[in-house]
Every structure is written in C-alpha cells, then in structure tokens.
Design a protein around this nucleic acid. Structure first.
Length: 649
RNA sequence: GGGCCCGUAGCCCAGCACGGAUUAAGGCGUCGGCCUUCGGAGCCGGAGAACGUGGGUUCAAAUCCCACCGGGCCCGCCA
C-alpha cells in the first residue's frame, strides 16, 4: 500500500472512531469541530483529543470519567493503523499508532513516490505568477535585498511542487530618476567598458554621480536660503550638505580615479539635476537616444544580477521591463479606465485615486483586513507635468499579469504594504475583483546591519556577492581541513554548494515576518541548524546505502521498535502536512525547520544503532529502508529550498 | 497624530493563524563526557526563561481580547 500522506490516514481513522463513539454515547450532542492534536510527548501517543474537557460541561460529567467511557465505547474492530486508545491526563483521549504497520506504510510510500513524496498535489492546479527580487538596476544586490530572491524562489518551488504552473517574473524598474542618474554619469564618462563585474561598476557610478548631484543641488539651495535669511533653513541645509560632503570624501578615498573624472565632467554642467530630469522625461517619452542609453546601463547591471542570482541558484521565466508598459501605452490605457471610475479626481493639476472611497463603496474593508475606522490614504496617479508614478505603472503591469495567470504572488518588502494595498484596491475598482482576490502581497521584514542602516545611495552596503564569496571561502577551508585527500576540483565544487547552501539557508530559516539583523556568523554557520548540517546528514545517509552494497530485500518493519526509529518514522510521515502548511501560509522557514529536526533525529539514530551490521538481517534491511527514506525526504526538502543535496562532501 | 510588523535564556530562534497535559522545543556560547561499529560538519549530559508589562475571557493562555511599554516600517507630484 502506498499513500501520499500516511499520517492523514491515521488521523482520519482516529477521527472516525471518535465520532462514532460520540454518536453512540451522546446522540444529541453536536460536535462542530473535532480537532486532533499532537501530544507533547510520545508517551501520550501520536494523536490526542481534548474533546472531553469541552464536552464535560454540556453532559455534566468529569472529563476523566468521560474520557474513560469514550475509550471503552470506541469500536476497536475498526482499528487498522491504530494500535490502541487510552484515556489520560485527566480527560485526554490518546491514540497510539501501530508502528509495525505504520512504519511499513510510511517507508514503502516514500520509496515508491520518491521525488514526489511529501508534495501533496493540489486538486485545482492554477497558473501562478511569482514576482520576486525586482531589485532596481542601480547597484549590486546587497544582502538586505537578497532575502527576497531566496524567499521568492523557495515559494515558487513549493507551489510548483504542489502541482501549480508557476512562472517566475523579475520586474525591471527602469523608469524613474534613479536610472537616469546612472545614465547621465555613464555618458559623462564616455560610456566606458565596465571594469570588473558590471553591476558593481554601475553601482560605483550611481553612488558617486548621485552624491555629486546632491551636493550641487544643496549648494544652490543654500545660496537661496542665505538670501532669504531664514536661519533655521540654512542650518538644516548645512547639516545635510555636511553629511553628503563626508560621503563624498569617503567615495573619493575608495574610488579616487572615477571620482575625479566624474567630478570634472559633471562640474561642466550648469544644472546637472535638470539634465537628469530631462533624460528621465525623454526616456519615459520613448525618445530613441534616451532609450538606447538607459537600456544600455540597465542591461549592464542586469548582466551582473544574472550572474549573482544564477550562482545562488535563482532563475526567472520572464524579465519584464517597466518602460515597455509606458511605451506601449498600457499605462495610459489603464489610467483611462481608472478615470472612468468614480474614484478618480483632480487636485491642483494632479490626478488622484480616492482609495478610501473605493474601499467603502465596494465594501472591501473586511475583505482586505482593514479596521473599520482606518482611512486608506489616496494615491497620486499622475504628476502635474503628466508623468506617471510607480504604483500607476504597477497597475498596468498587474493588468498584464492578470491576462496570463490565475494567482499572483508579489514578493516585496513590508515597507511597501500601503502601496501594494492601494494597488489592490485600484484593481478592485477597475472591476477585476476576482483576480484581485488572488493577488497576494507576500511581505517580509527587513534585513539590517548591526549599528547602521544599509544605504545604497550612500554606497554603504554589503553585497550578496561578497557574502557568497566569503561563505564559499570559509567552506573551502573546512573542506581542505576535513578531506585533504580530495582533488582541488572536488574541494572547490564542495565548497561552492556548501557555502551557497549556508547562505540560502540563513536567509530562509527565519520567519519572513521577523526582522533579521545581518551578522557574519549567521551565514557562516556550518554546524547544527544550517544547510551544511543537513547536506552532511544527507551525504551520511547516502554513504551508508553505498557501503551496504545491497538493496533491502526482506525488511521486517515490525522490528523497528526503538523509540528513535519510531520518531523518525513519525517525522517522515508528517512531511506532507508540513509541506502543505508551509505552502499555504507562505512559510518556507517551516521546511528548513523540519529538515533540521529530521537531520537531528537521524544523527541520533546513526550514532546509537548499527544499520548494515544489525541483526537479524530483516532488521538490517528495515533500517536500510529507513535510511533510504530519510535520504529521500532530506533531498526533497533541500530541493524545495533550492539547496543542493550532495551524495558526498 | 494614524496604520502595519516585531518583542520567548547572555545571544539567535521554534511554538502563536486552530488555546490544552509531567518538563516552553532547538541552536550559538558555556561546563562535563564520547575516536568499540556504517563519515566527529557528529553524538550524549549539565547549567541557563518573570514567554515585554498590566488587566480580561476560559475548566485551561506564550497562544484569544483590551490597554500600555520598547524596537522597526509606512502615511511623497520617490521607487
């Protein structure tokens, strides 16, 4: 017999016998929800019901007495996977699984389903677009942003494993002043060939150029303020200017040549800020020269991103340019449609979307989880000069997505919660209620550095590349220490997947809603609760299977009587439910946690009990099959998280 | 001022959505053990927790409700 979810069978059986017993004893009592829980201790069985505590009131009996009566009433002839039921703890009913049968079911199911074990298929496969990463092409991806692709990739893997058709999208935000800043600096430098990795090169140009422009602007403002002689204003500008001057000094120290060149060239312009604005506007209007220039710098940056993300094992099905939606008039079209709704008004030459009014009239407060008295701020759709804003363009982009899928996951930091909410409301207002209901903002909390905030504008950040380099280097030292006999090539290969695995694990392990303070020892952990620990455990399991040099021909699963063996079987059986829950609640960290716990138990087992040499041979065979099952499940969990499961390391 | 998120041992972190059992699960660090078996990136055992505070609901609260405190984020003709 094979089951894709063995524990569910046990649960179902327990529920059935319990329901029957209730019906027999109290035909009139209605039980609305019968939840079985997992007891805190294996001594209390594998599933328990606290139903008697509740029932005690309505039937006027003590919970303990009630539980005892229930256990006696339970129809034991219906038992298959249940070994026995008992009352305990003053009112609980505990169900004990028959491990002889259960182990056979679990281990055989895993062996059969193999790469599919745990991945309970959805009854209704959907087309799902997961948009993630979408880092603006301005500078290298830094460690704060790296949490996004790692979470997004894991989520996409999970939906895919569930049987959905998943498409991974990267939204390239190339419209806006920031890309124009780079293009401006890049042009001033005479469109040089990148030195080193292109995104790092672009990042340097961006930081220096924007710093110089900022200083130029502040100096002008200072002059003006001095004339009008408002002291407070002068002091404020001076303070800001001081800060940017110190950034400039820092940048000059780090990149003297580039800094000098840019300073020289930019100084030639009377009003660099205006040059940037002009460029930005020309780009939005689709003017050829601007198009060529900005696309060129953006592409350079993206080239670096592809390298970085590819190294981390993250890939995309579609790269969507924001500018395309401007140029092909989708944004204008969307705006036109929005204007026809009663929620758009003009205020001082500016087009506004009255999100609050839309929410009220469309009755969305409850649906969107908003407080009744909370007023959603309105959203500016179009500037006085006729250019659009980010969220407006995102509306057009989302409408495009709506034509291509059923469900939409946006992996975007929680600082954008309001913008995402306004976007969703706008979609409802446009009449896409059903699709909008399937529009999910997967918000995760920020990654910060201890002591200071990462600032890409100031060039203060730790790049994802640096972190991976460091991790791989550290992993290399470990490999060299542990396995000096390996060839240089092998060592490097192992160091790569160990280092990258460690980084991915560190970024996915914490509950997405919790903030993370980046520290090196968080990502450089190769011991317990890390990818290397799980990879190592997997390799260990493979090693046993290799050394055994035989298949388990005649396993007697009933001989797996040790407590740790039972616990492993139980954990293995739980994987499908963990997977479903983790996917439904968008919590890939649950998968990481599960894999770590299973590894823990396996290592305890490994240390305590022999496998190959176990006697009799039927026990050895059963243990071999158990090891194989652990191997399969560990590999499946690592695959979900995008971490390599090596057979040797 | 308003809204959202977070607050569990020295540090990190699970459990909270769906309230349950003696003993709140792990990791790092710390103290002490294990090279007799299949990979020591390992295993076993100590010590270490007012579950932010105060109320409330309940037979039962880390978990639900209310208030407060501390940290973060957002409330732009930025993205």
């Amino acid at each position: 017999m094979v089951s894709e979810n063995p524990f569910a069978i046990f649960r179902f059986e327990c529920k059935n016998v319990l329901e029957e017993a209730i019906k027999k004893l109290f035909p009139k009592v209605e039980i609305t929800r019968l939840a079985l829980e997992k007891p805190p201790n294996p001594d209390f069985g594998q599933l328990a019901s606290s139903l008697c505590f509740e029932l005690a009131k309505s039937v006027n009996e003590k919970p303990a007495v009630l539980a005892e009566r229930m256990v006696k009433t339970i129809d034991k002839s219906k038992f298959s996977l249940i070994e026995h039921a008992a009352s305990a703890g003053g009112g609980y009913i505990n169900f004990y699984v028959d491990f002889a049968k259960f182990s056979a079911l679990v281990i055989q199911s895993i062996g059969q389903l193999n790469k599919e074990y745990g991945f309970v298929k959805t009854e209704k496969p959907l087309k799902i677009i997961v948009e993630h990463t979408s880092v603006n092409p301005l500078h290298p991806i830094h460690i704060g942003q790296a949490r996004n692709p790692i979470l997004g990739d894991a989520i996409a893997n999970m939906f895919k494993a569930m049987g959905h058709k998943v498409s991974r999208h990267y939204y390239i935000d190339d419209v806006g002043r920031q890309t124009a800043v780079i293009a401006y600096g890049y042009k001033k430098l005479g469109k040089p060939k990148p030195e080193g990795k292109p995104d790092h090169f672009i990042g340097r140009i961006y930081t220096i150029t924007s710093c110089l422009i900022e200083i130029n602007r502040l100096k002008k403002e200072l002059e003006k303020a001095k004339k009008t002689a408002i002291n407070e204003e002068v002091t404020k500008i001076n303070r800001e200017l001081d800060e940017w001057m110190s950034v400039a000094v820092e940048l000059k120290g780090r990149f003297p040549e580039l800094f000098e060149k840019l300073l020289n060239e930019i100084s030639k312009d009377e009003d660099p800020e205006n040059e940037v604005n002009k460029l930005n506007q020309a780009y939005e209007e689709g003017e050829e020269a601007a198009k060529g220039l900005i696309r060129e710098v953006s592409e350079l940056c993206l080239q670096g991103f592809r390298e970085t993300l590819g190294r981390a094992g993250v890939f995309y099905d579609s790269w969507d340019w924001e500018s395309d939606f401007v140029w092909n008039n989708s944004v204008t079209e969307a705006l036109k449609k929005l204007k026809k709704t009663p929620y758009v008004f003009v205020l001082g030459g500016v087009l506004e979307f009255d999100a609050e009014k839309a929410v009220k009239e469309l009755n969305l407060k409850q649906k969107l989880g908003l407080r009744e008295d909370y007023e959603v701020p309105s959203l500016t759709l179009m500037r006085a000069d006729g250019t659009t804003l980010y969220t407006t363009r995102d509306i057009a982009y989302t409408l495009w997505k709506f034509e291509r899928a059923d469900k939409f996951i946006n992996v975007i930091g929680m600082e954008q919660t309001l913008a995402q909410l306004q976007l969703k409301i706008a979609l409802h207002a446009l009449g896409y209620g059903e699709k909008a209901d399937n529009f999910v903002h997967f918000a995760y909390n920020l990654v910060t550095l201890p002591g200071y905030k990462m600032s890409s504008r100031r060039g203060r950040y730790i790049t994802f590349d640096e972190v991976m380099d460091e991790a791989v280097e550290r992993a290399y030292k470990e490999v060299a220490k542990r396995s000096p006999q390996l060839s240089e090539n092998e060592k490097k290969k192992i160091a790569e997947f160990v280092g990258i695995g460690a980084v991915r694990y560190a970024l996915v392990e914490v509950d997405p809603s919790k903030p993370v303070v980046f520290t090196w020892d968080r990502v450089l952990n190769f011991e317990k609760n890390s990818a290397p620990y799980i990879q190592y455990t997997h390799a260990r399991a493979c090693s046993i299977l290799r050394k055994a040099e035989r298949k388990p021909e005649n396993p007697a699963y009933g001989l797996l009587k040790e407590r740790i063996e039972n616990q492993i079987v139980l954990d293995l059986a739980n994987f499908p439910e963990v997977f479903v829950e983790a996917t439904d609640f968008l919590k890939p960290n649950m998968i990481a946690d599960y894999a770590n716990t299973l590894s823990d138990k396996f290592n305890t087992f490994y240390n305590a009990l022999p496998v190959i040499k176990a006697e009799p041979k039927e026990l050895s065979d059963a243990r071999l099959a158990l090891v194989d099952a652990v191997r399969i499940v560990l590999r499946n969990t690592l695959n979900l998280l995008g971490i390599l499961a090596p057979e040797k390391m």
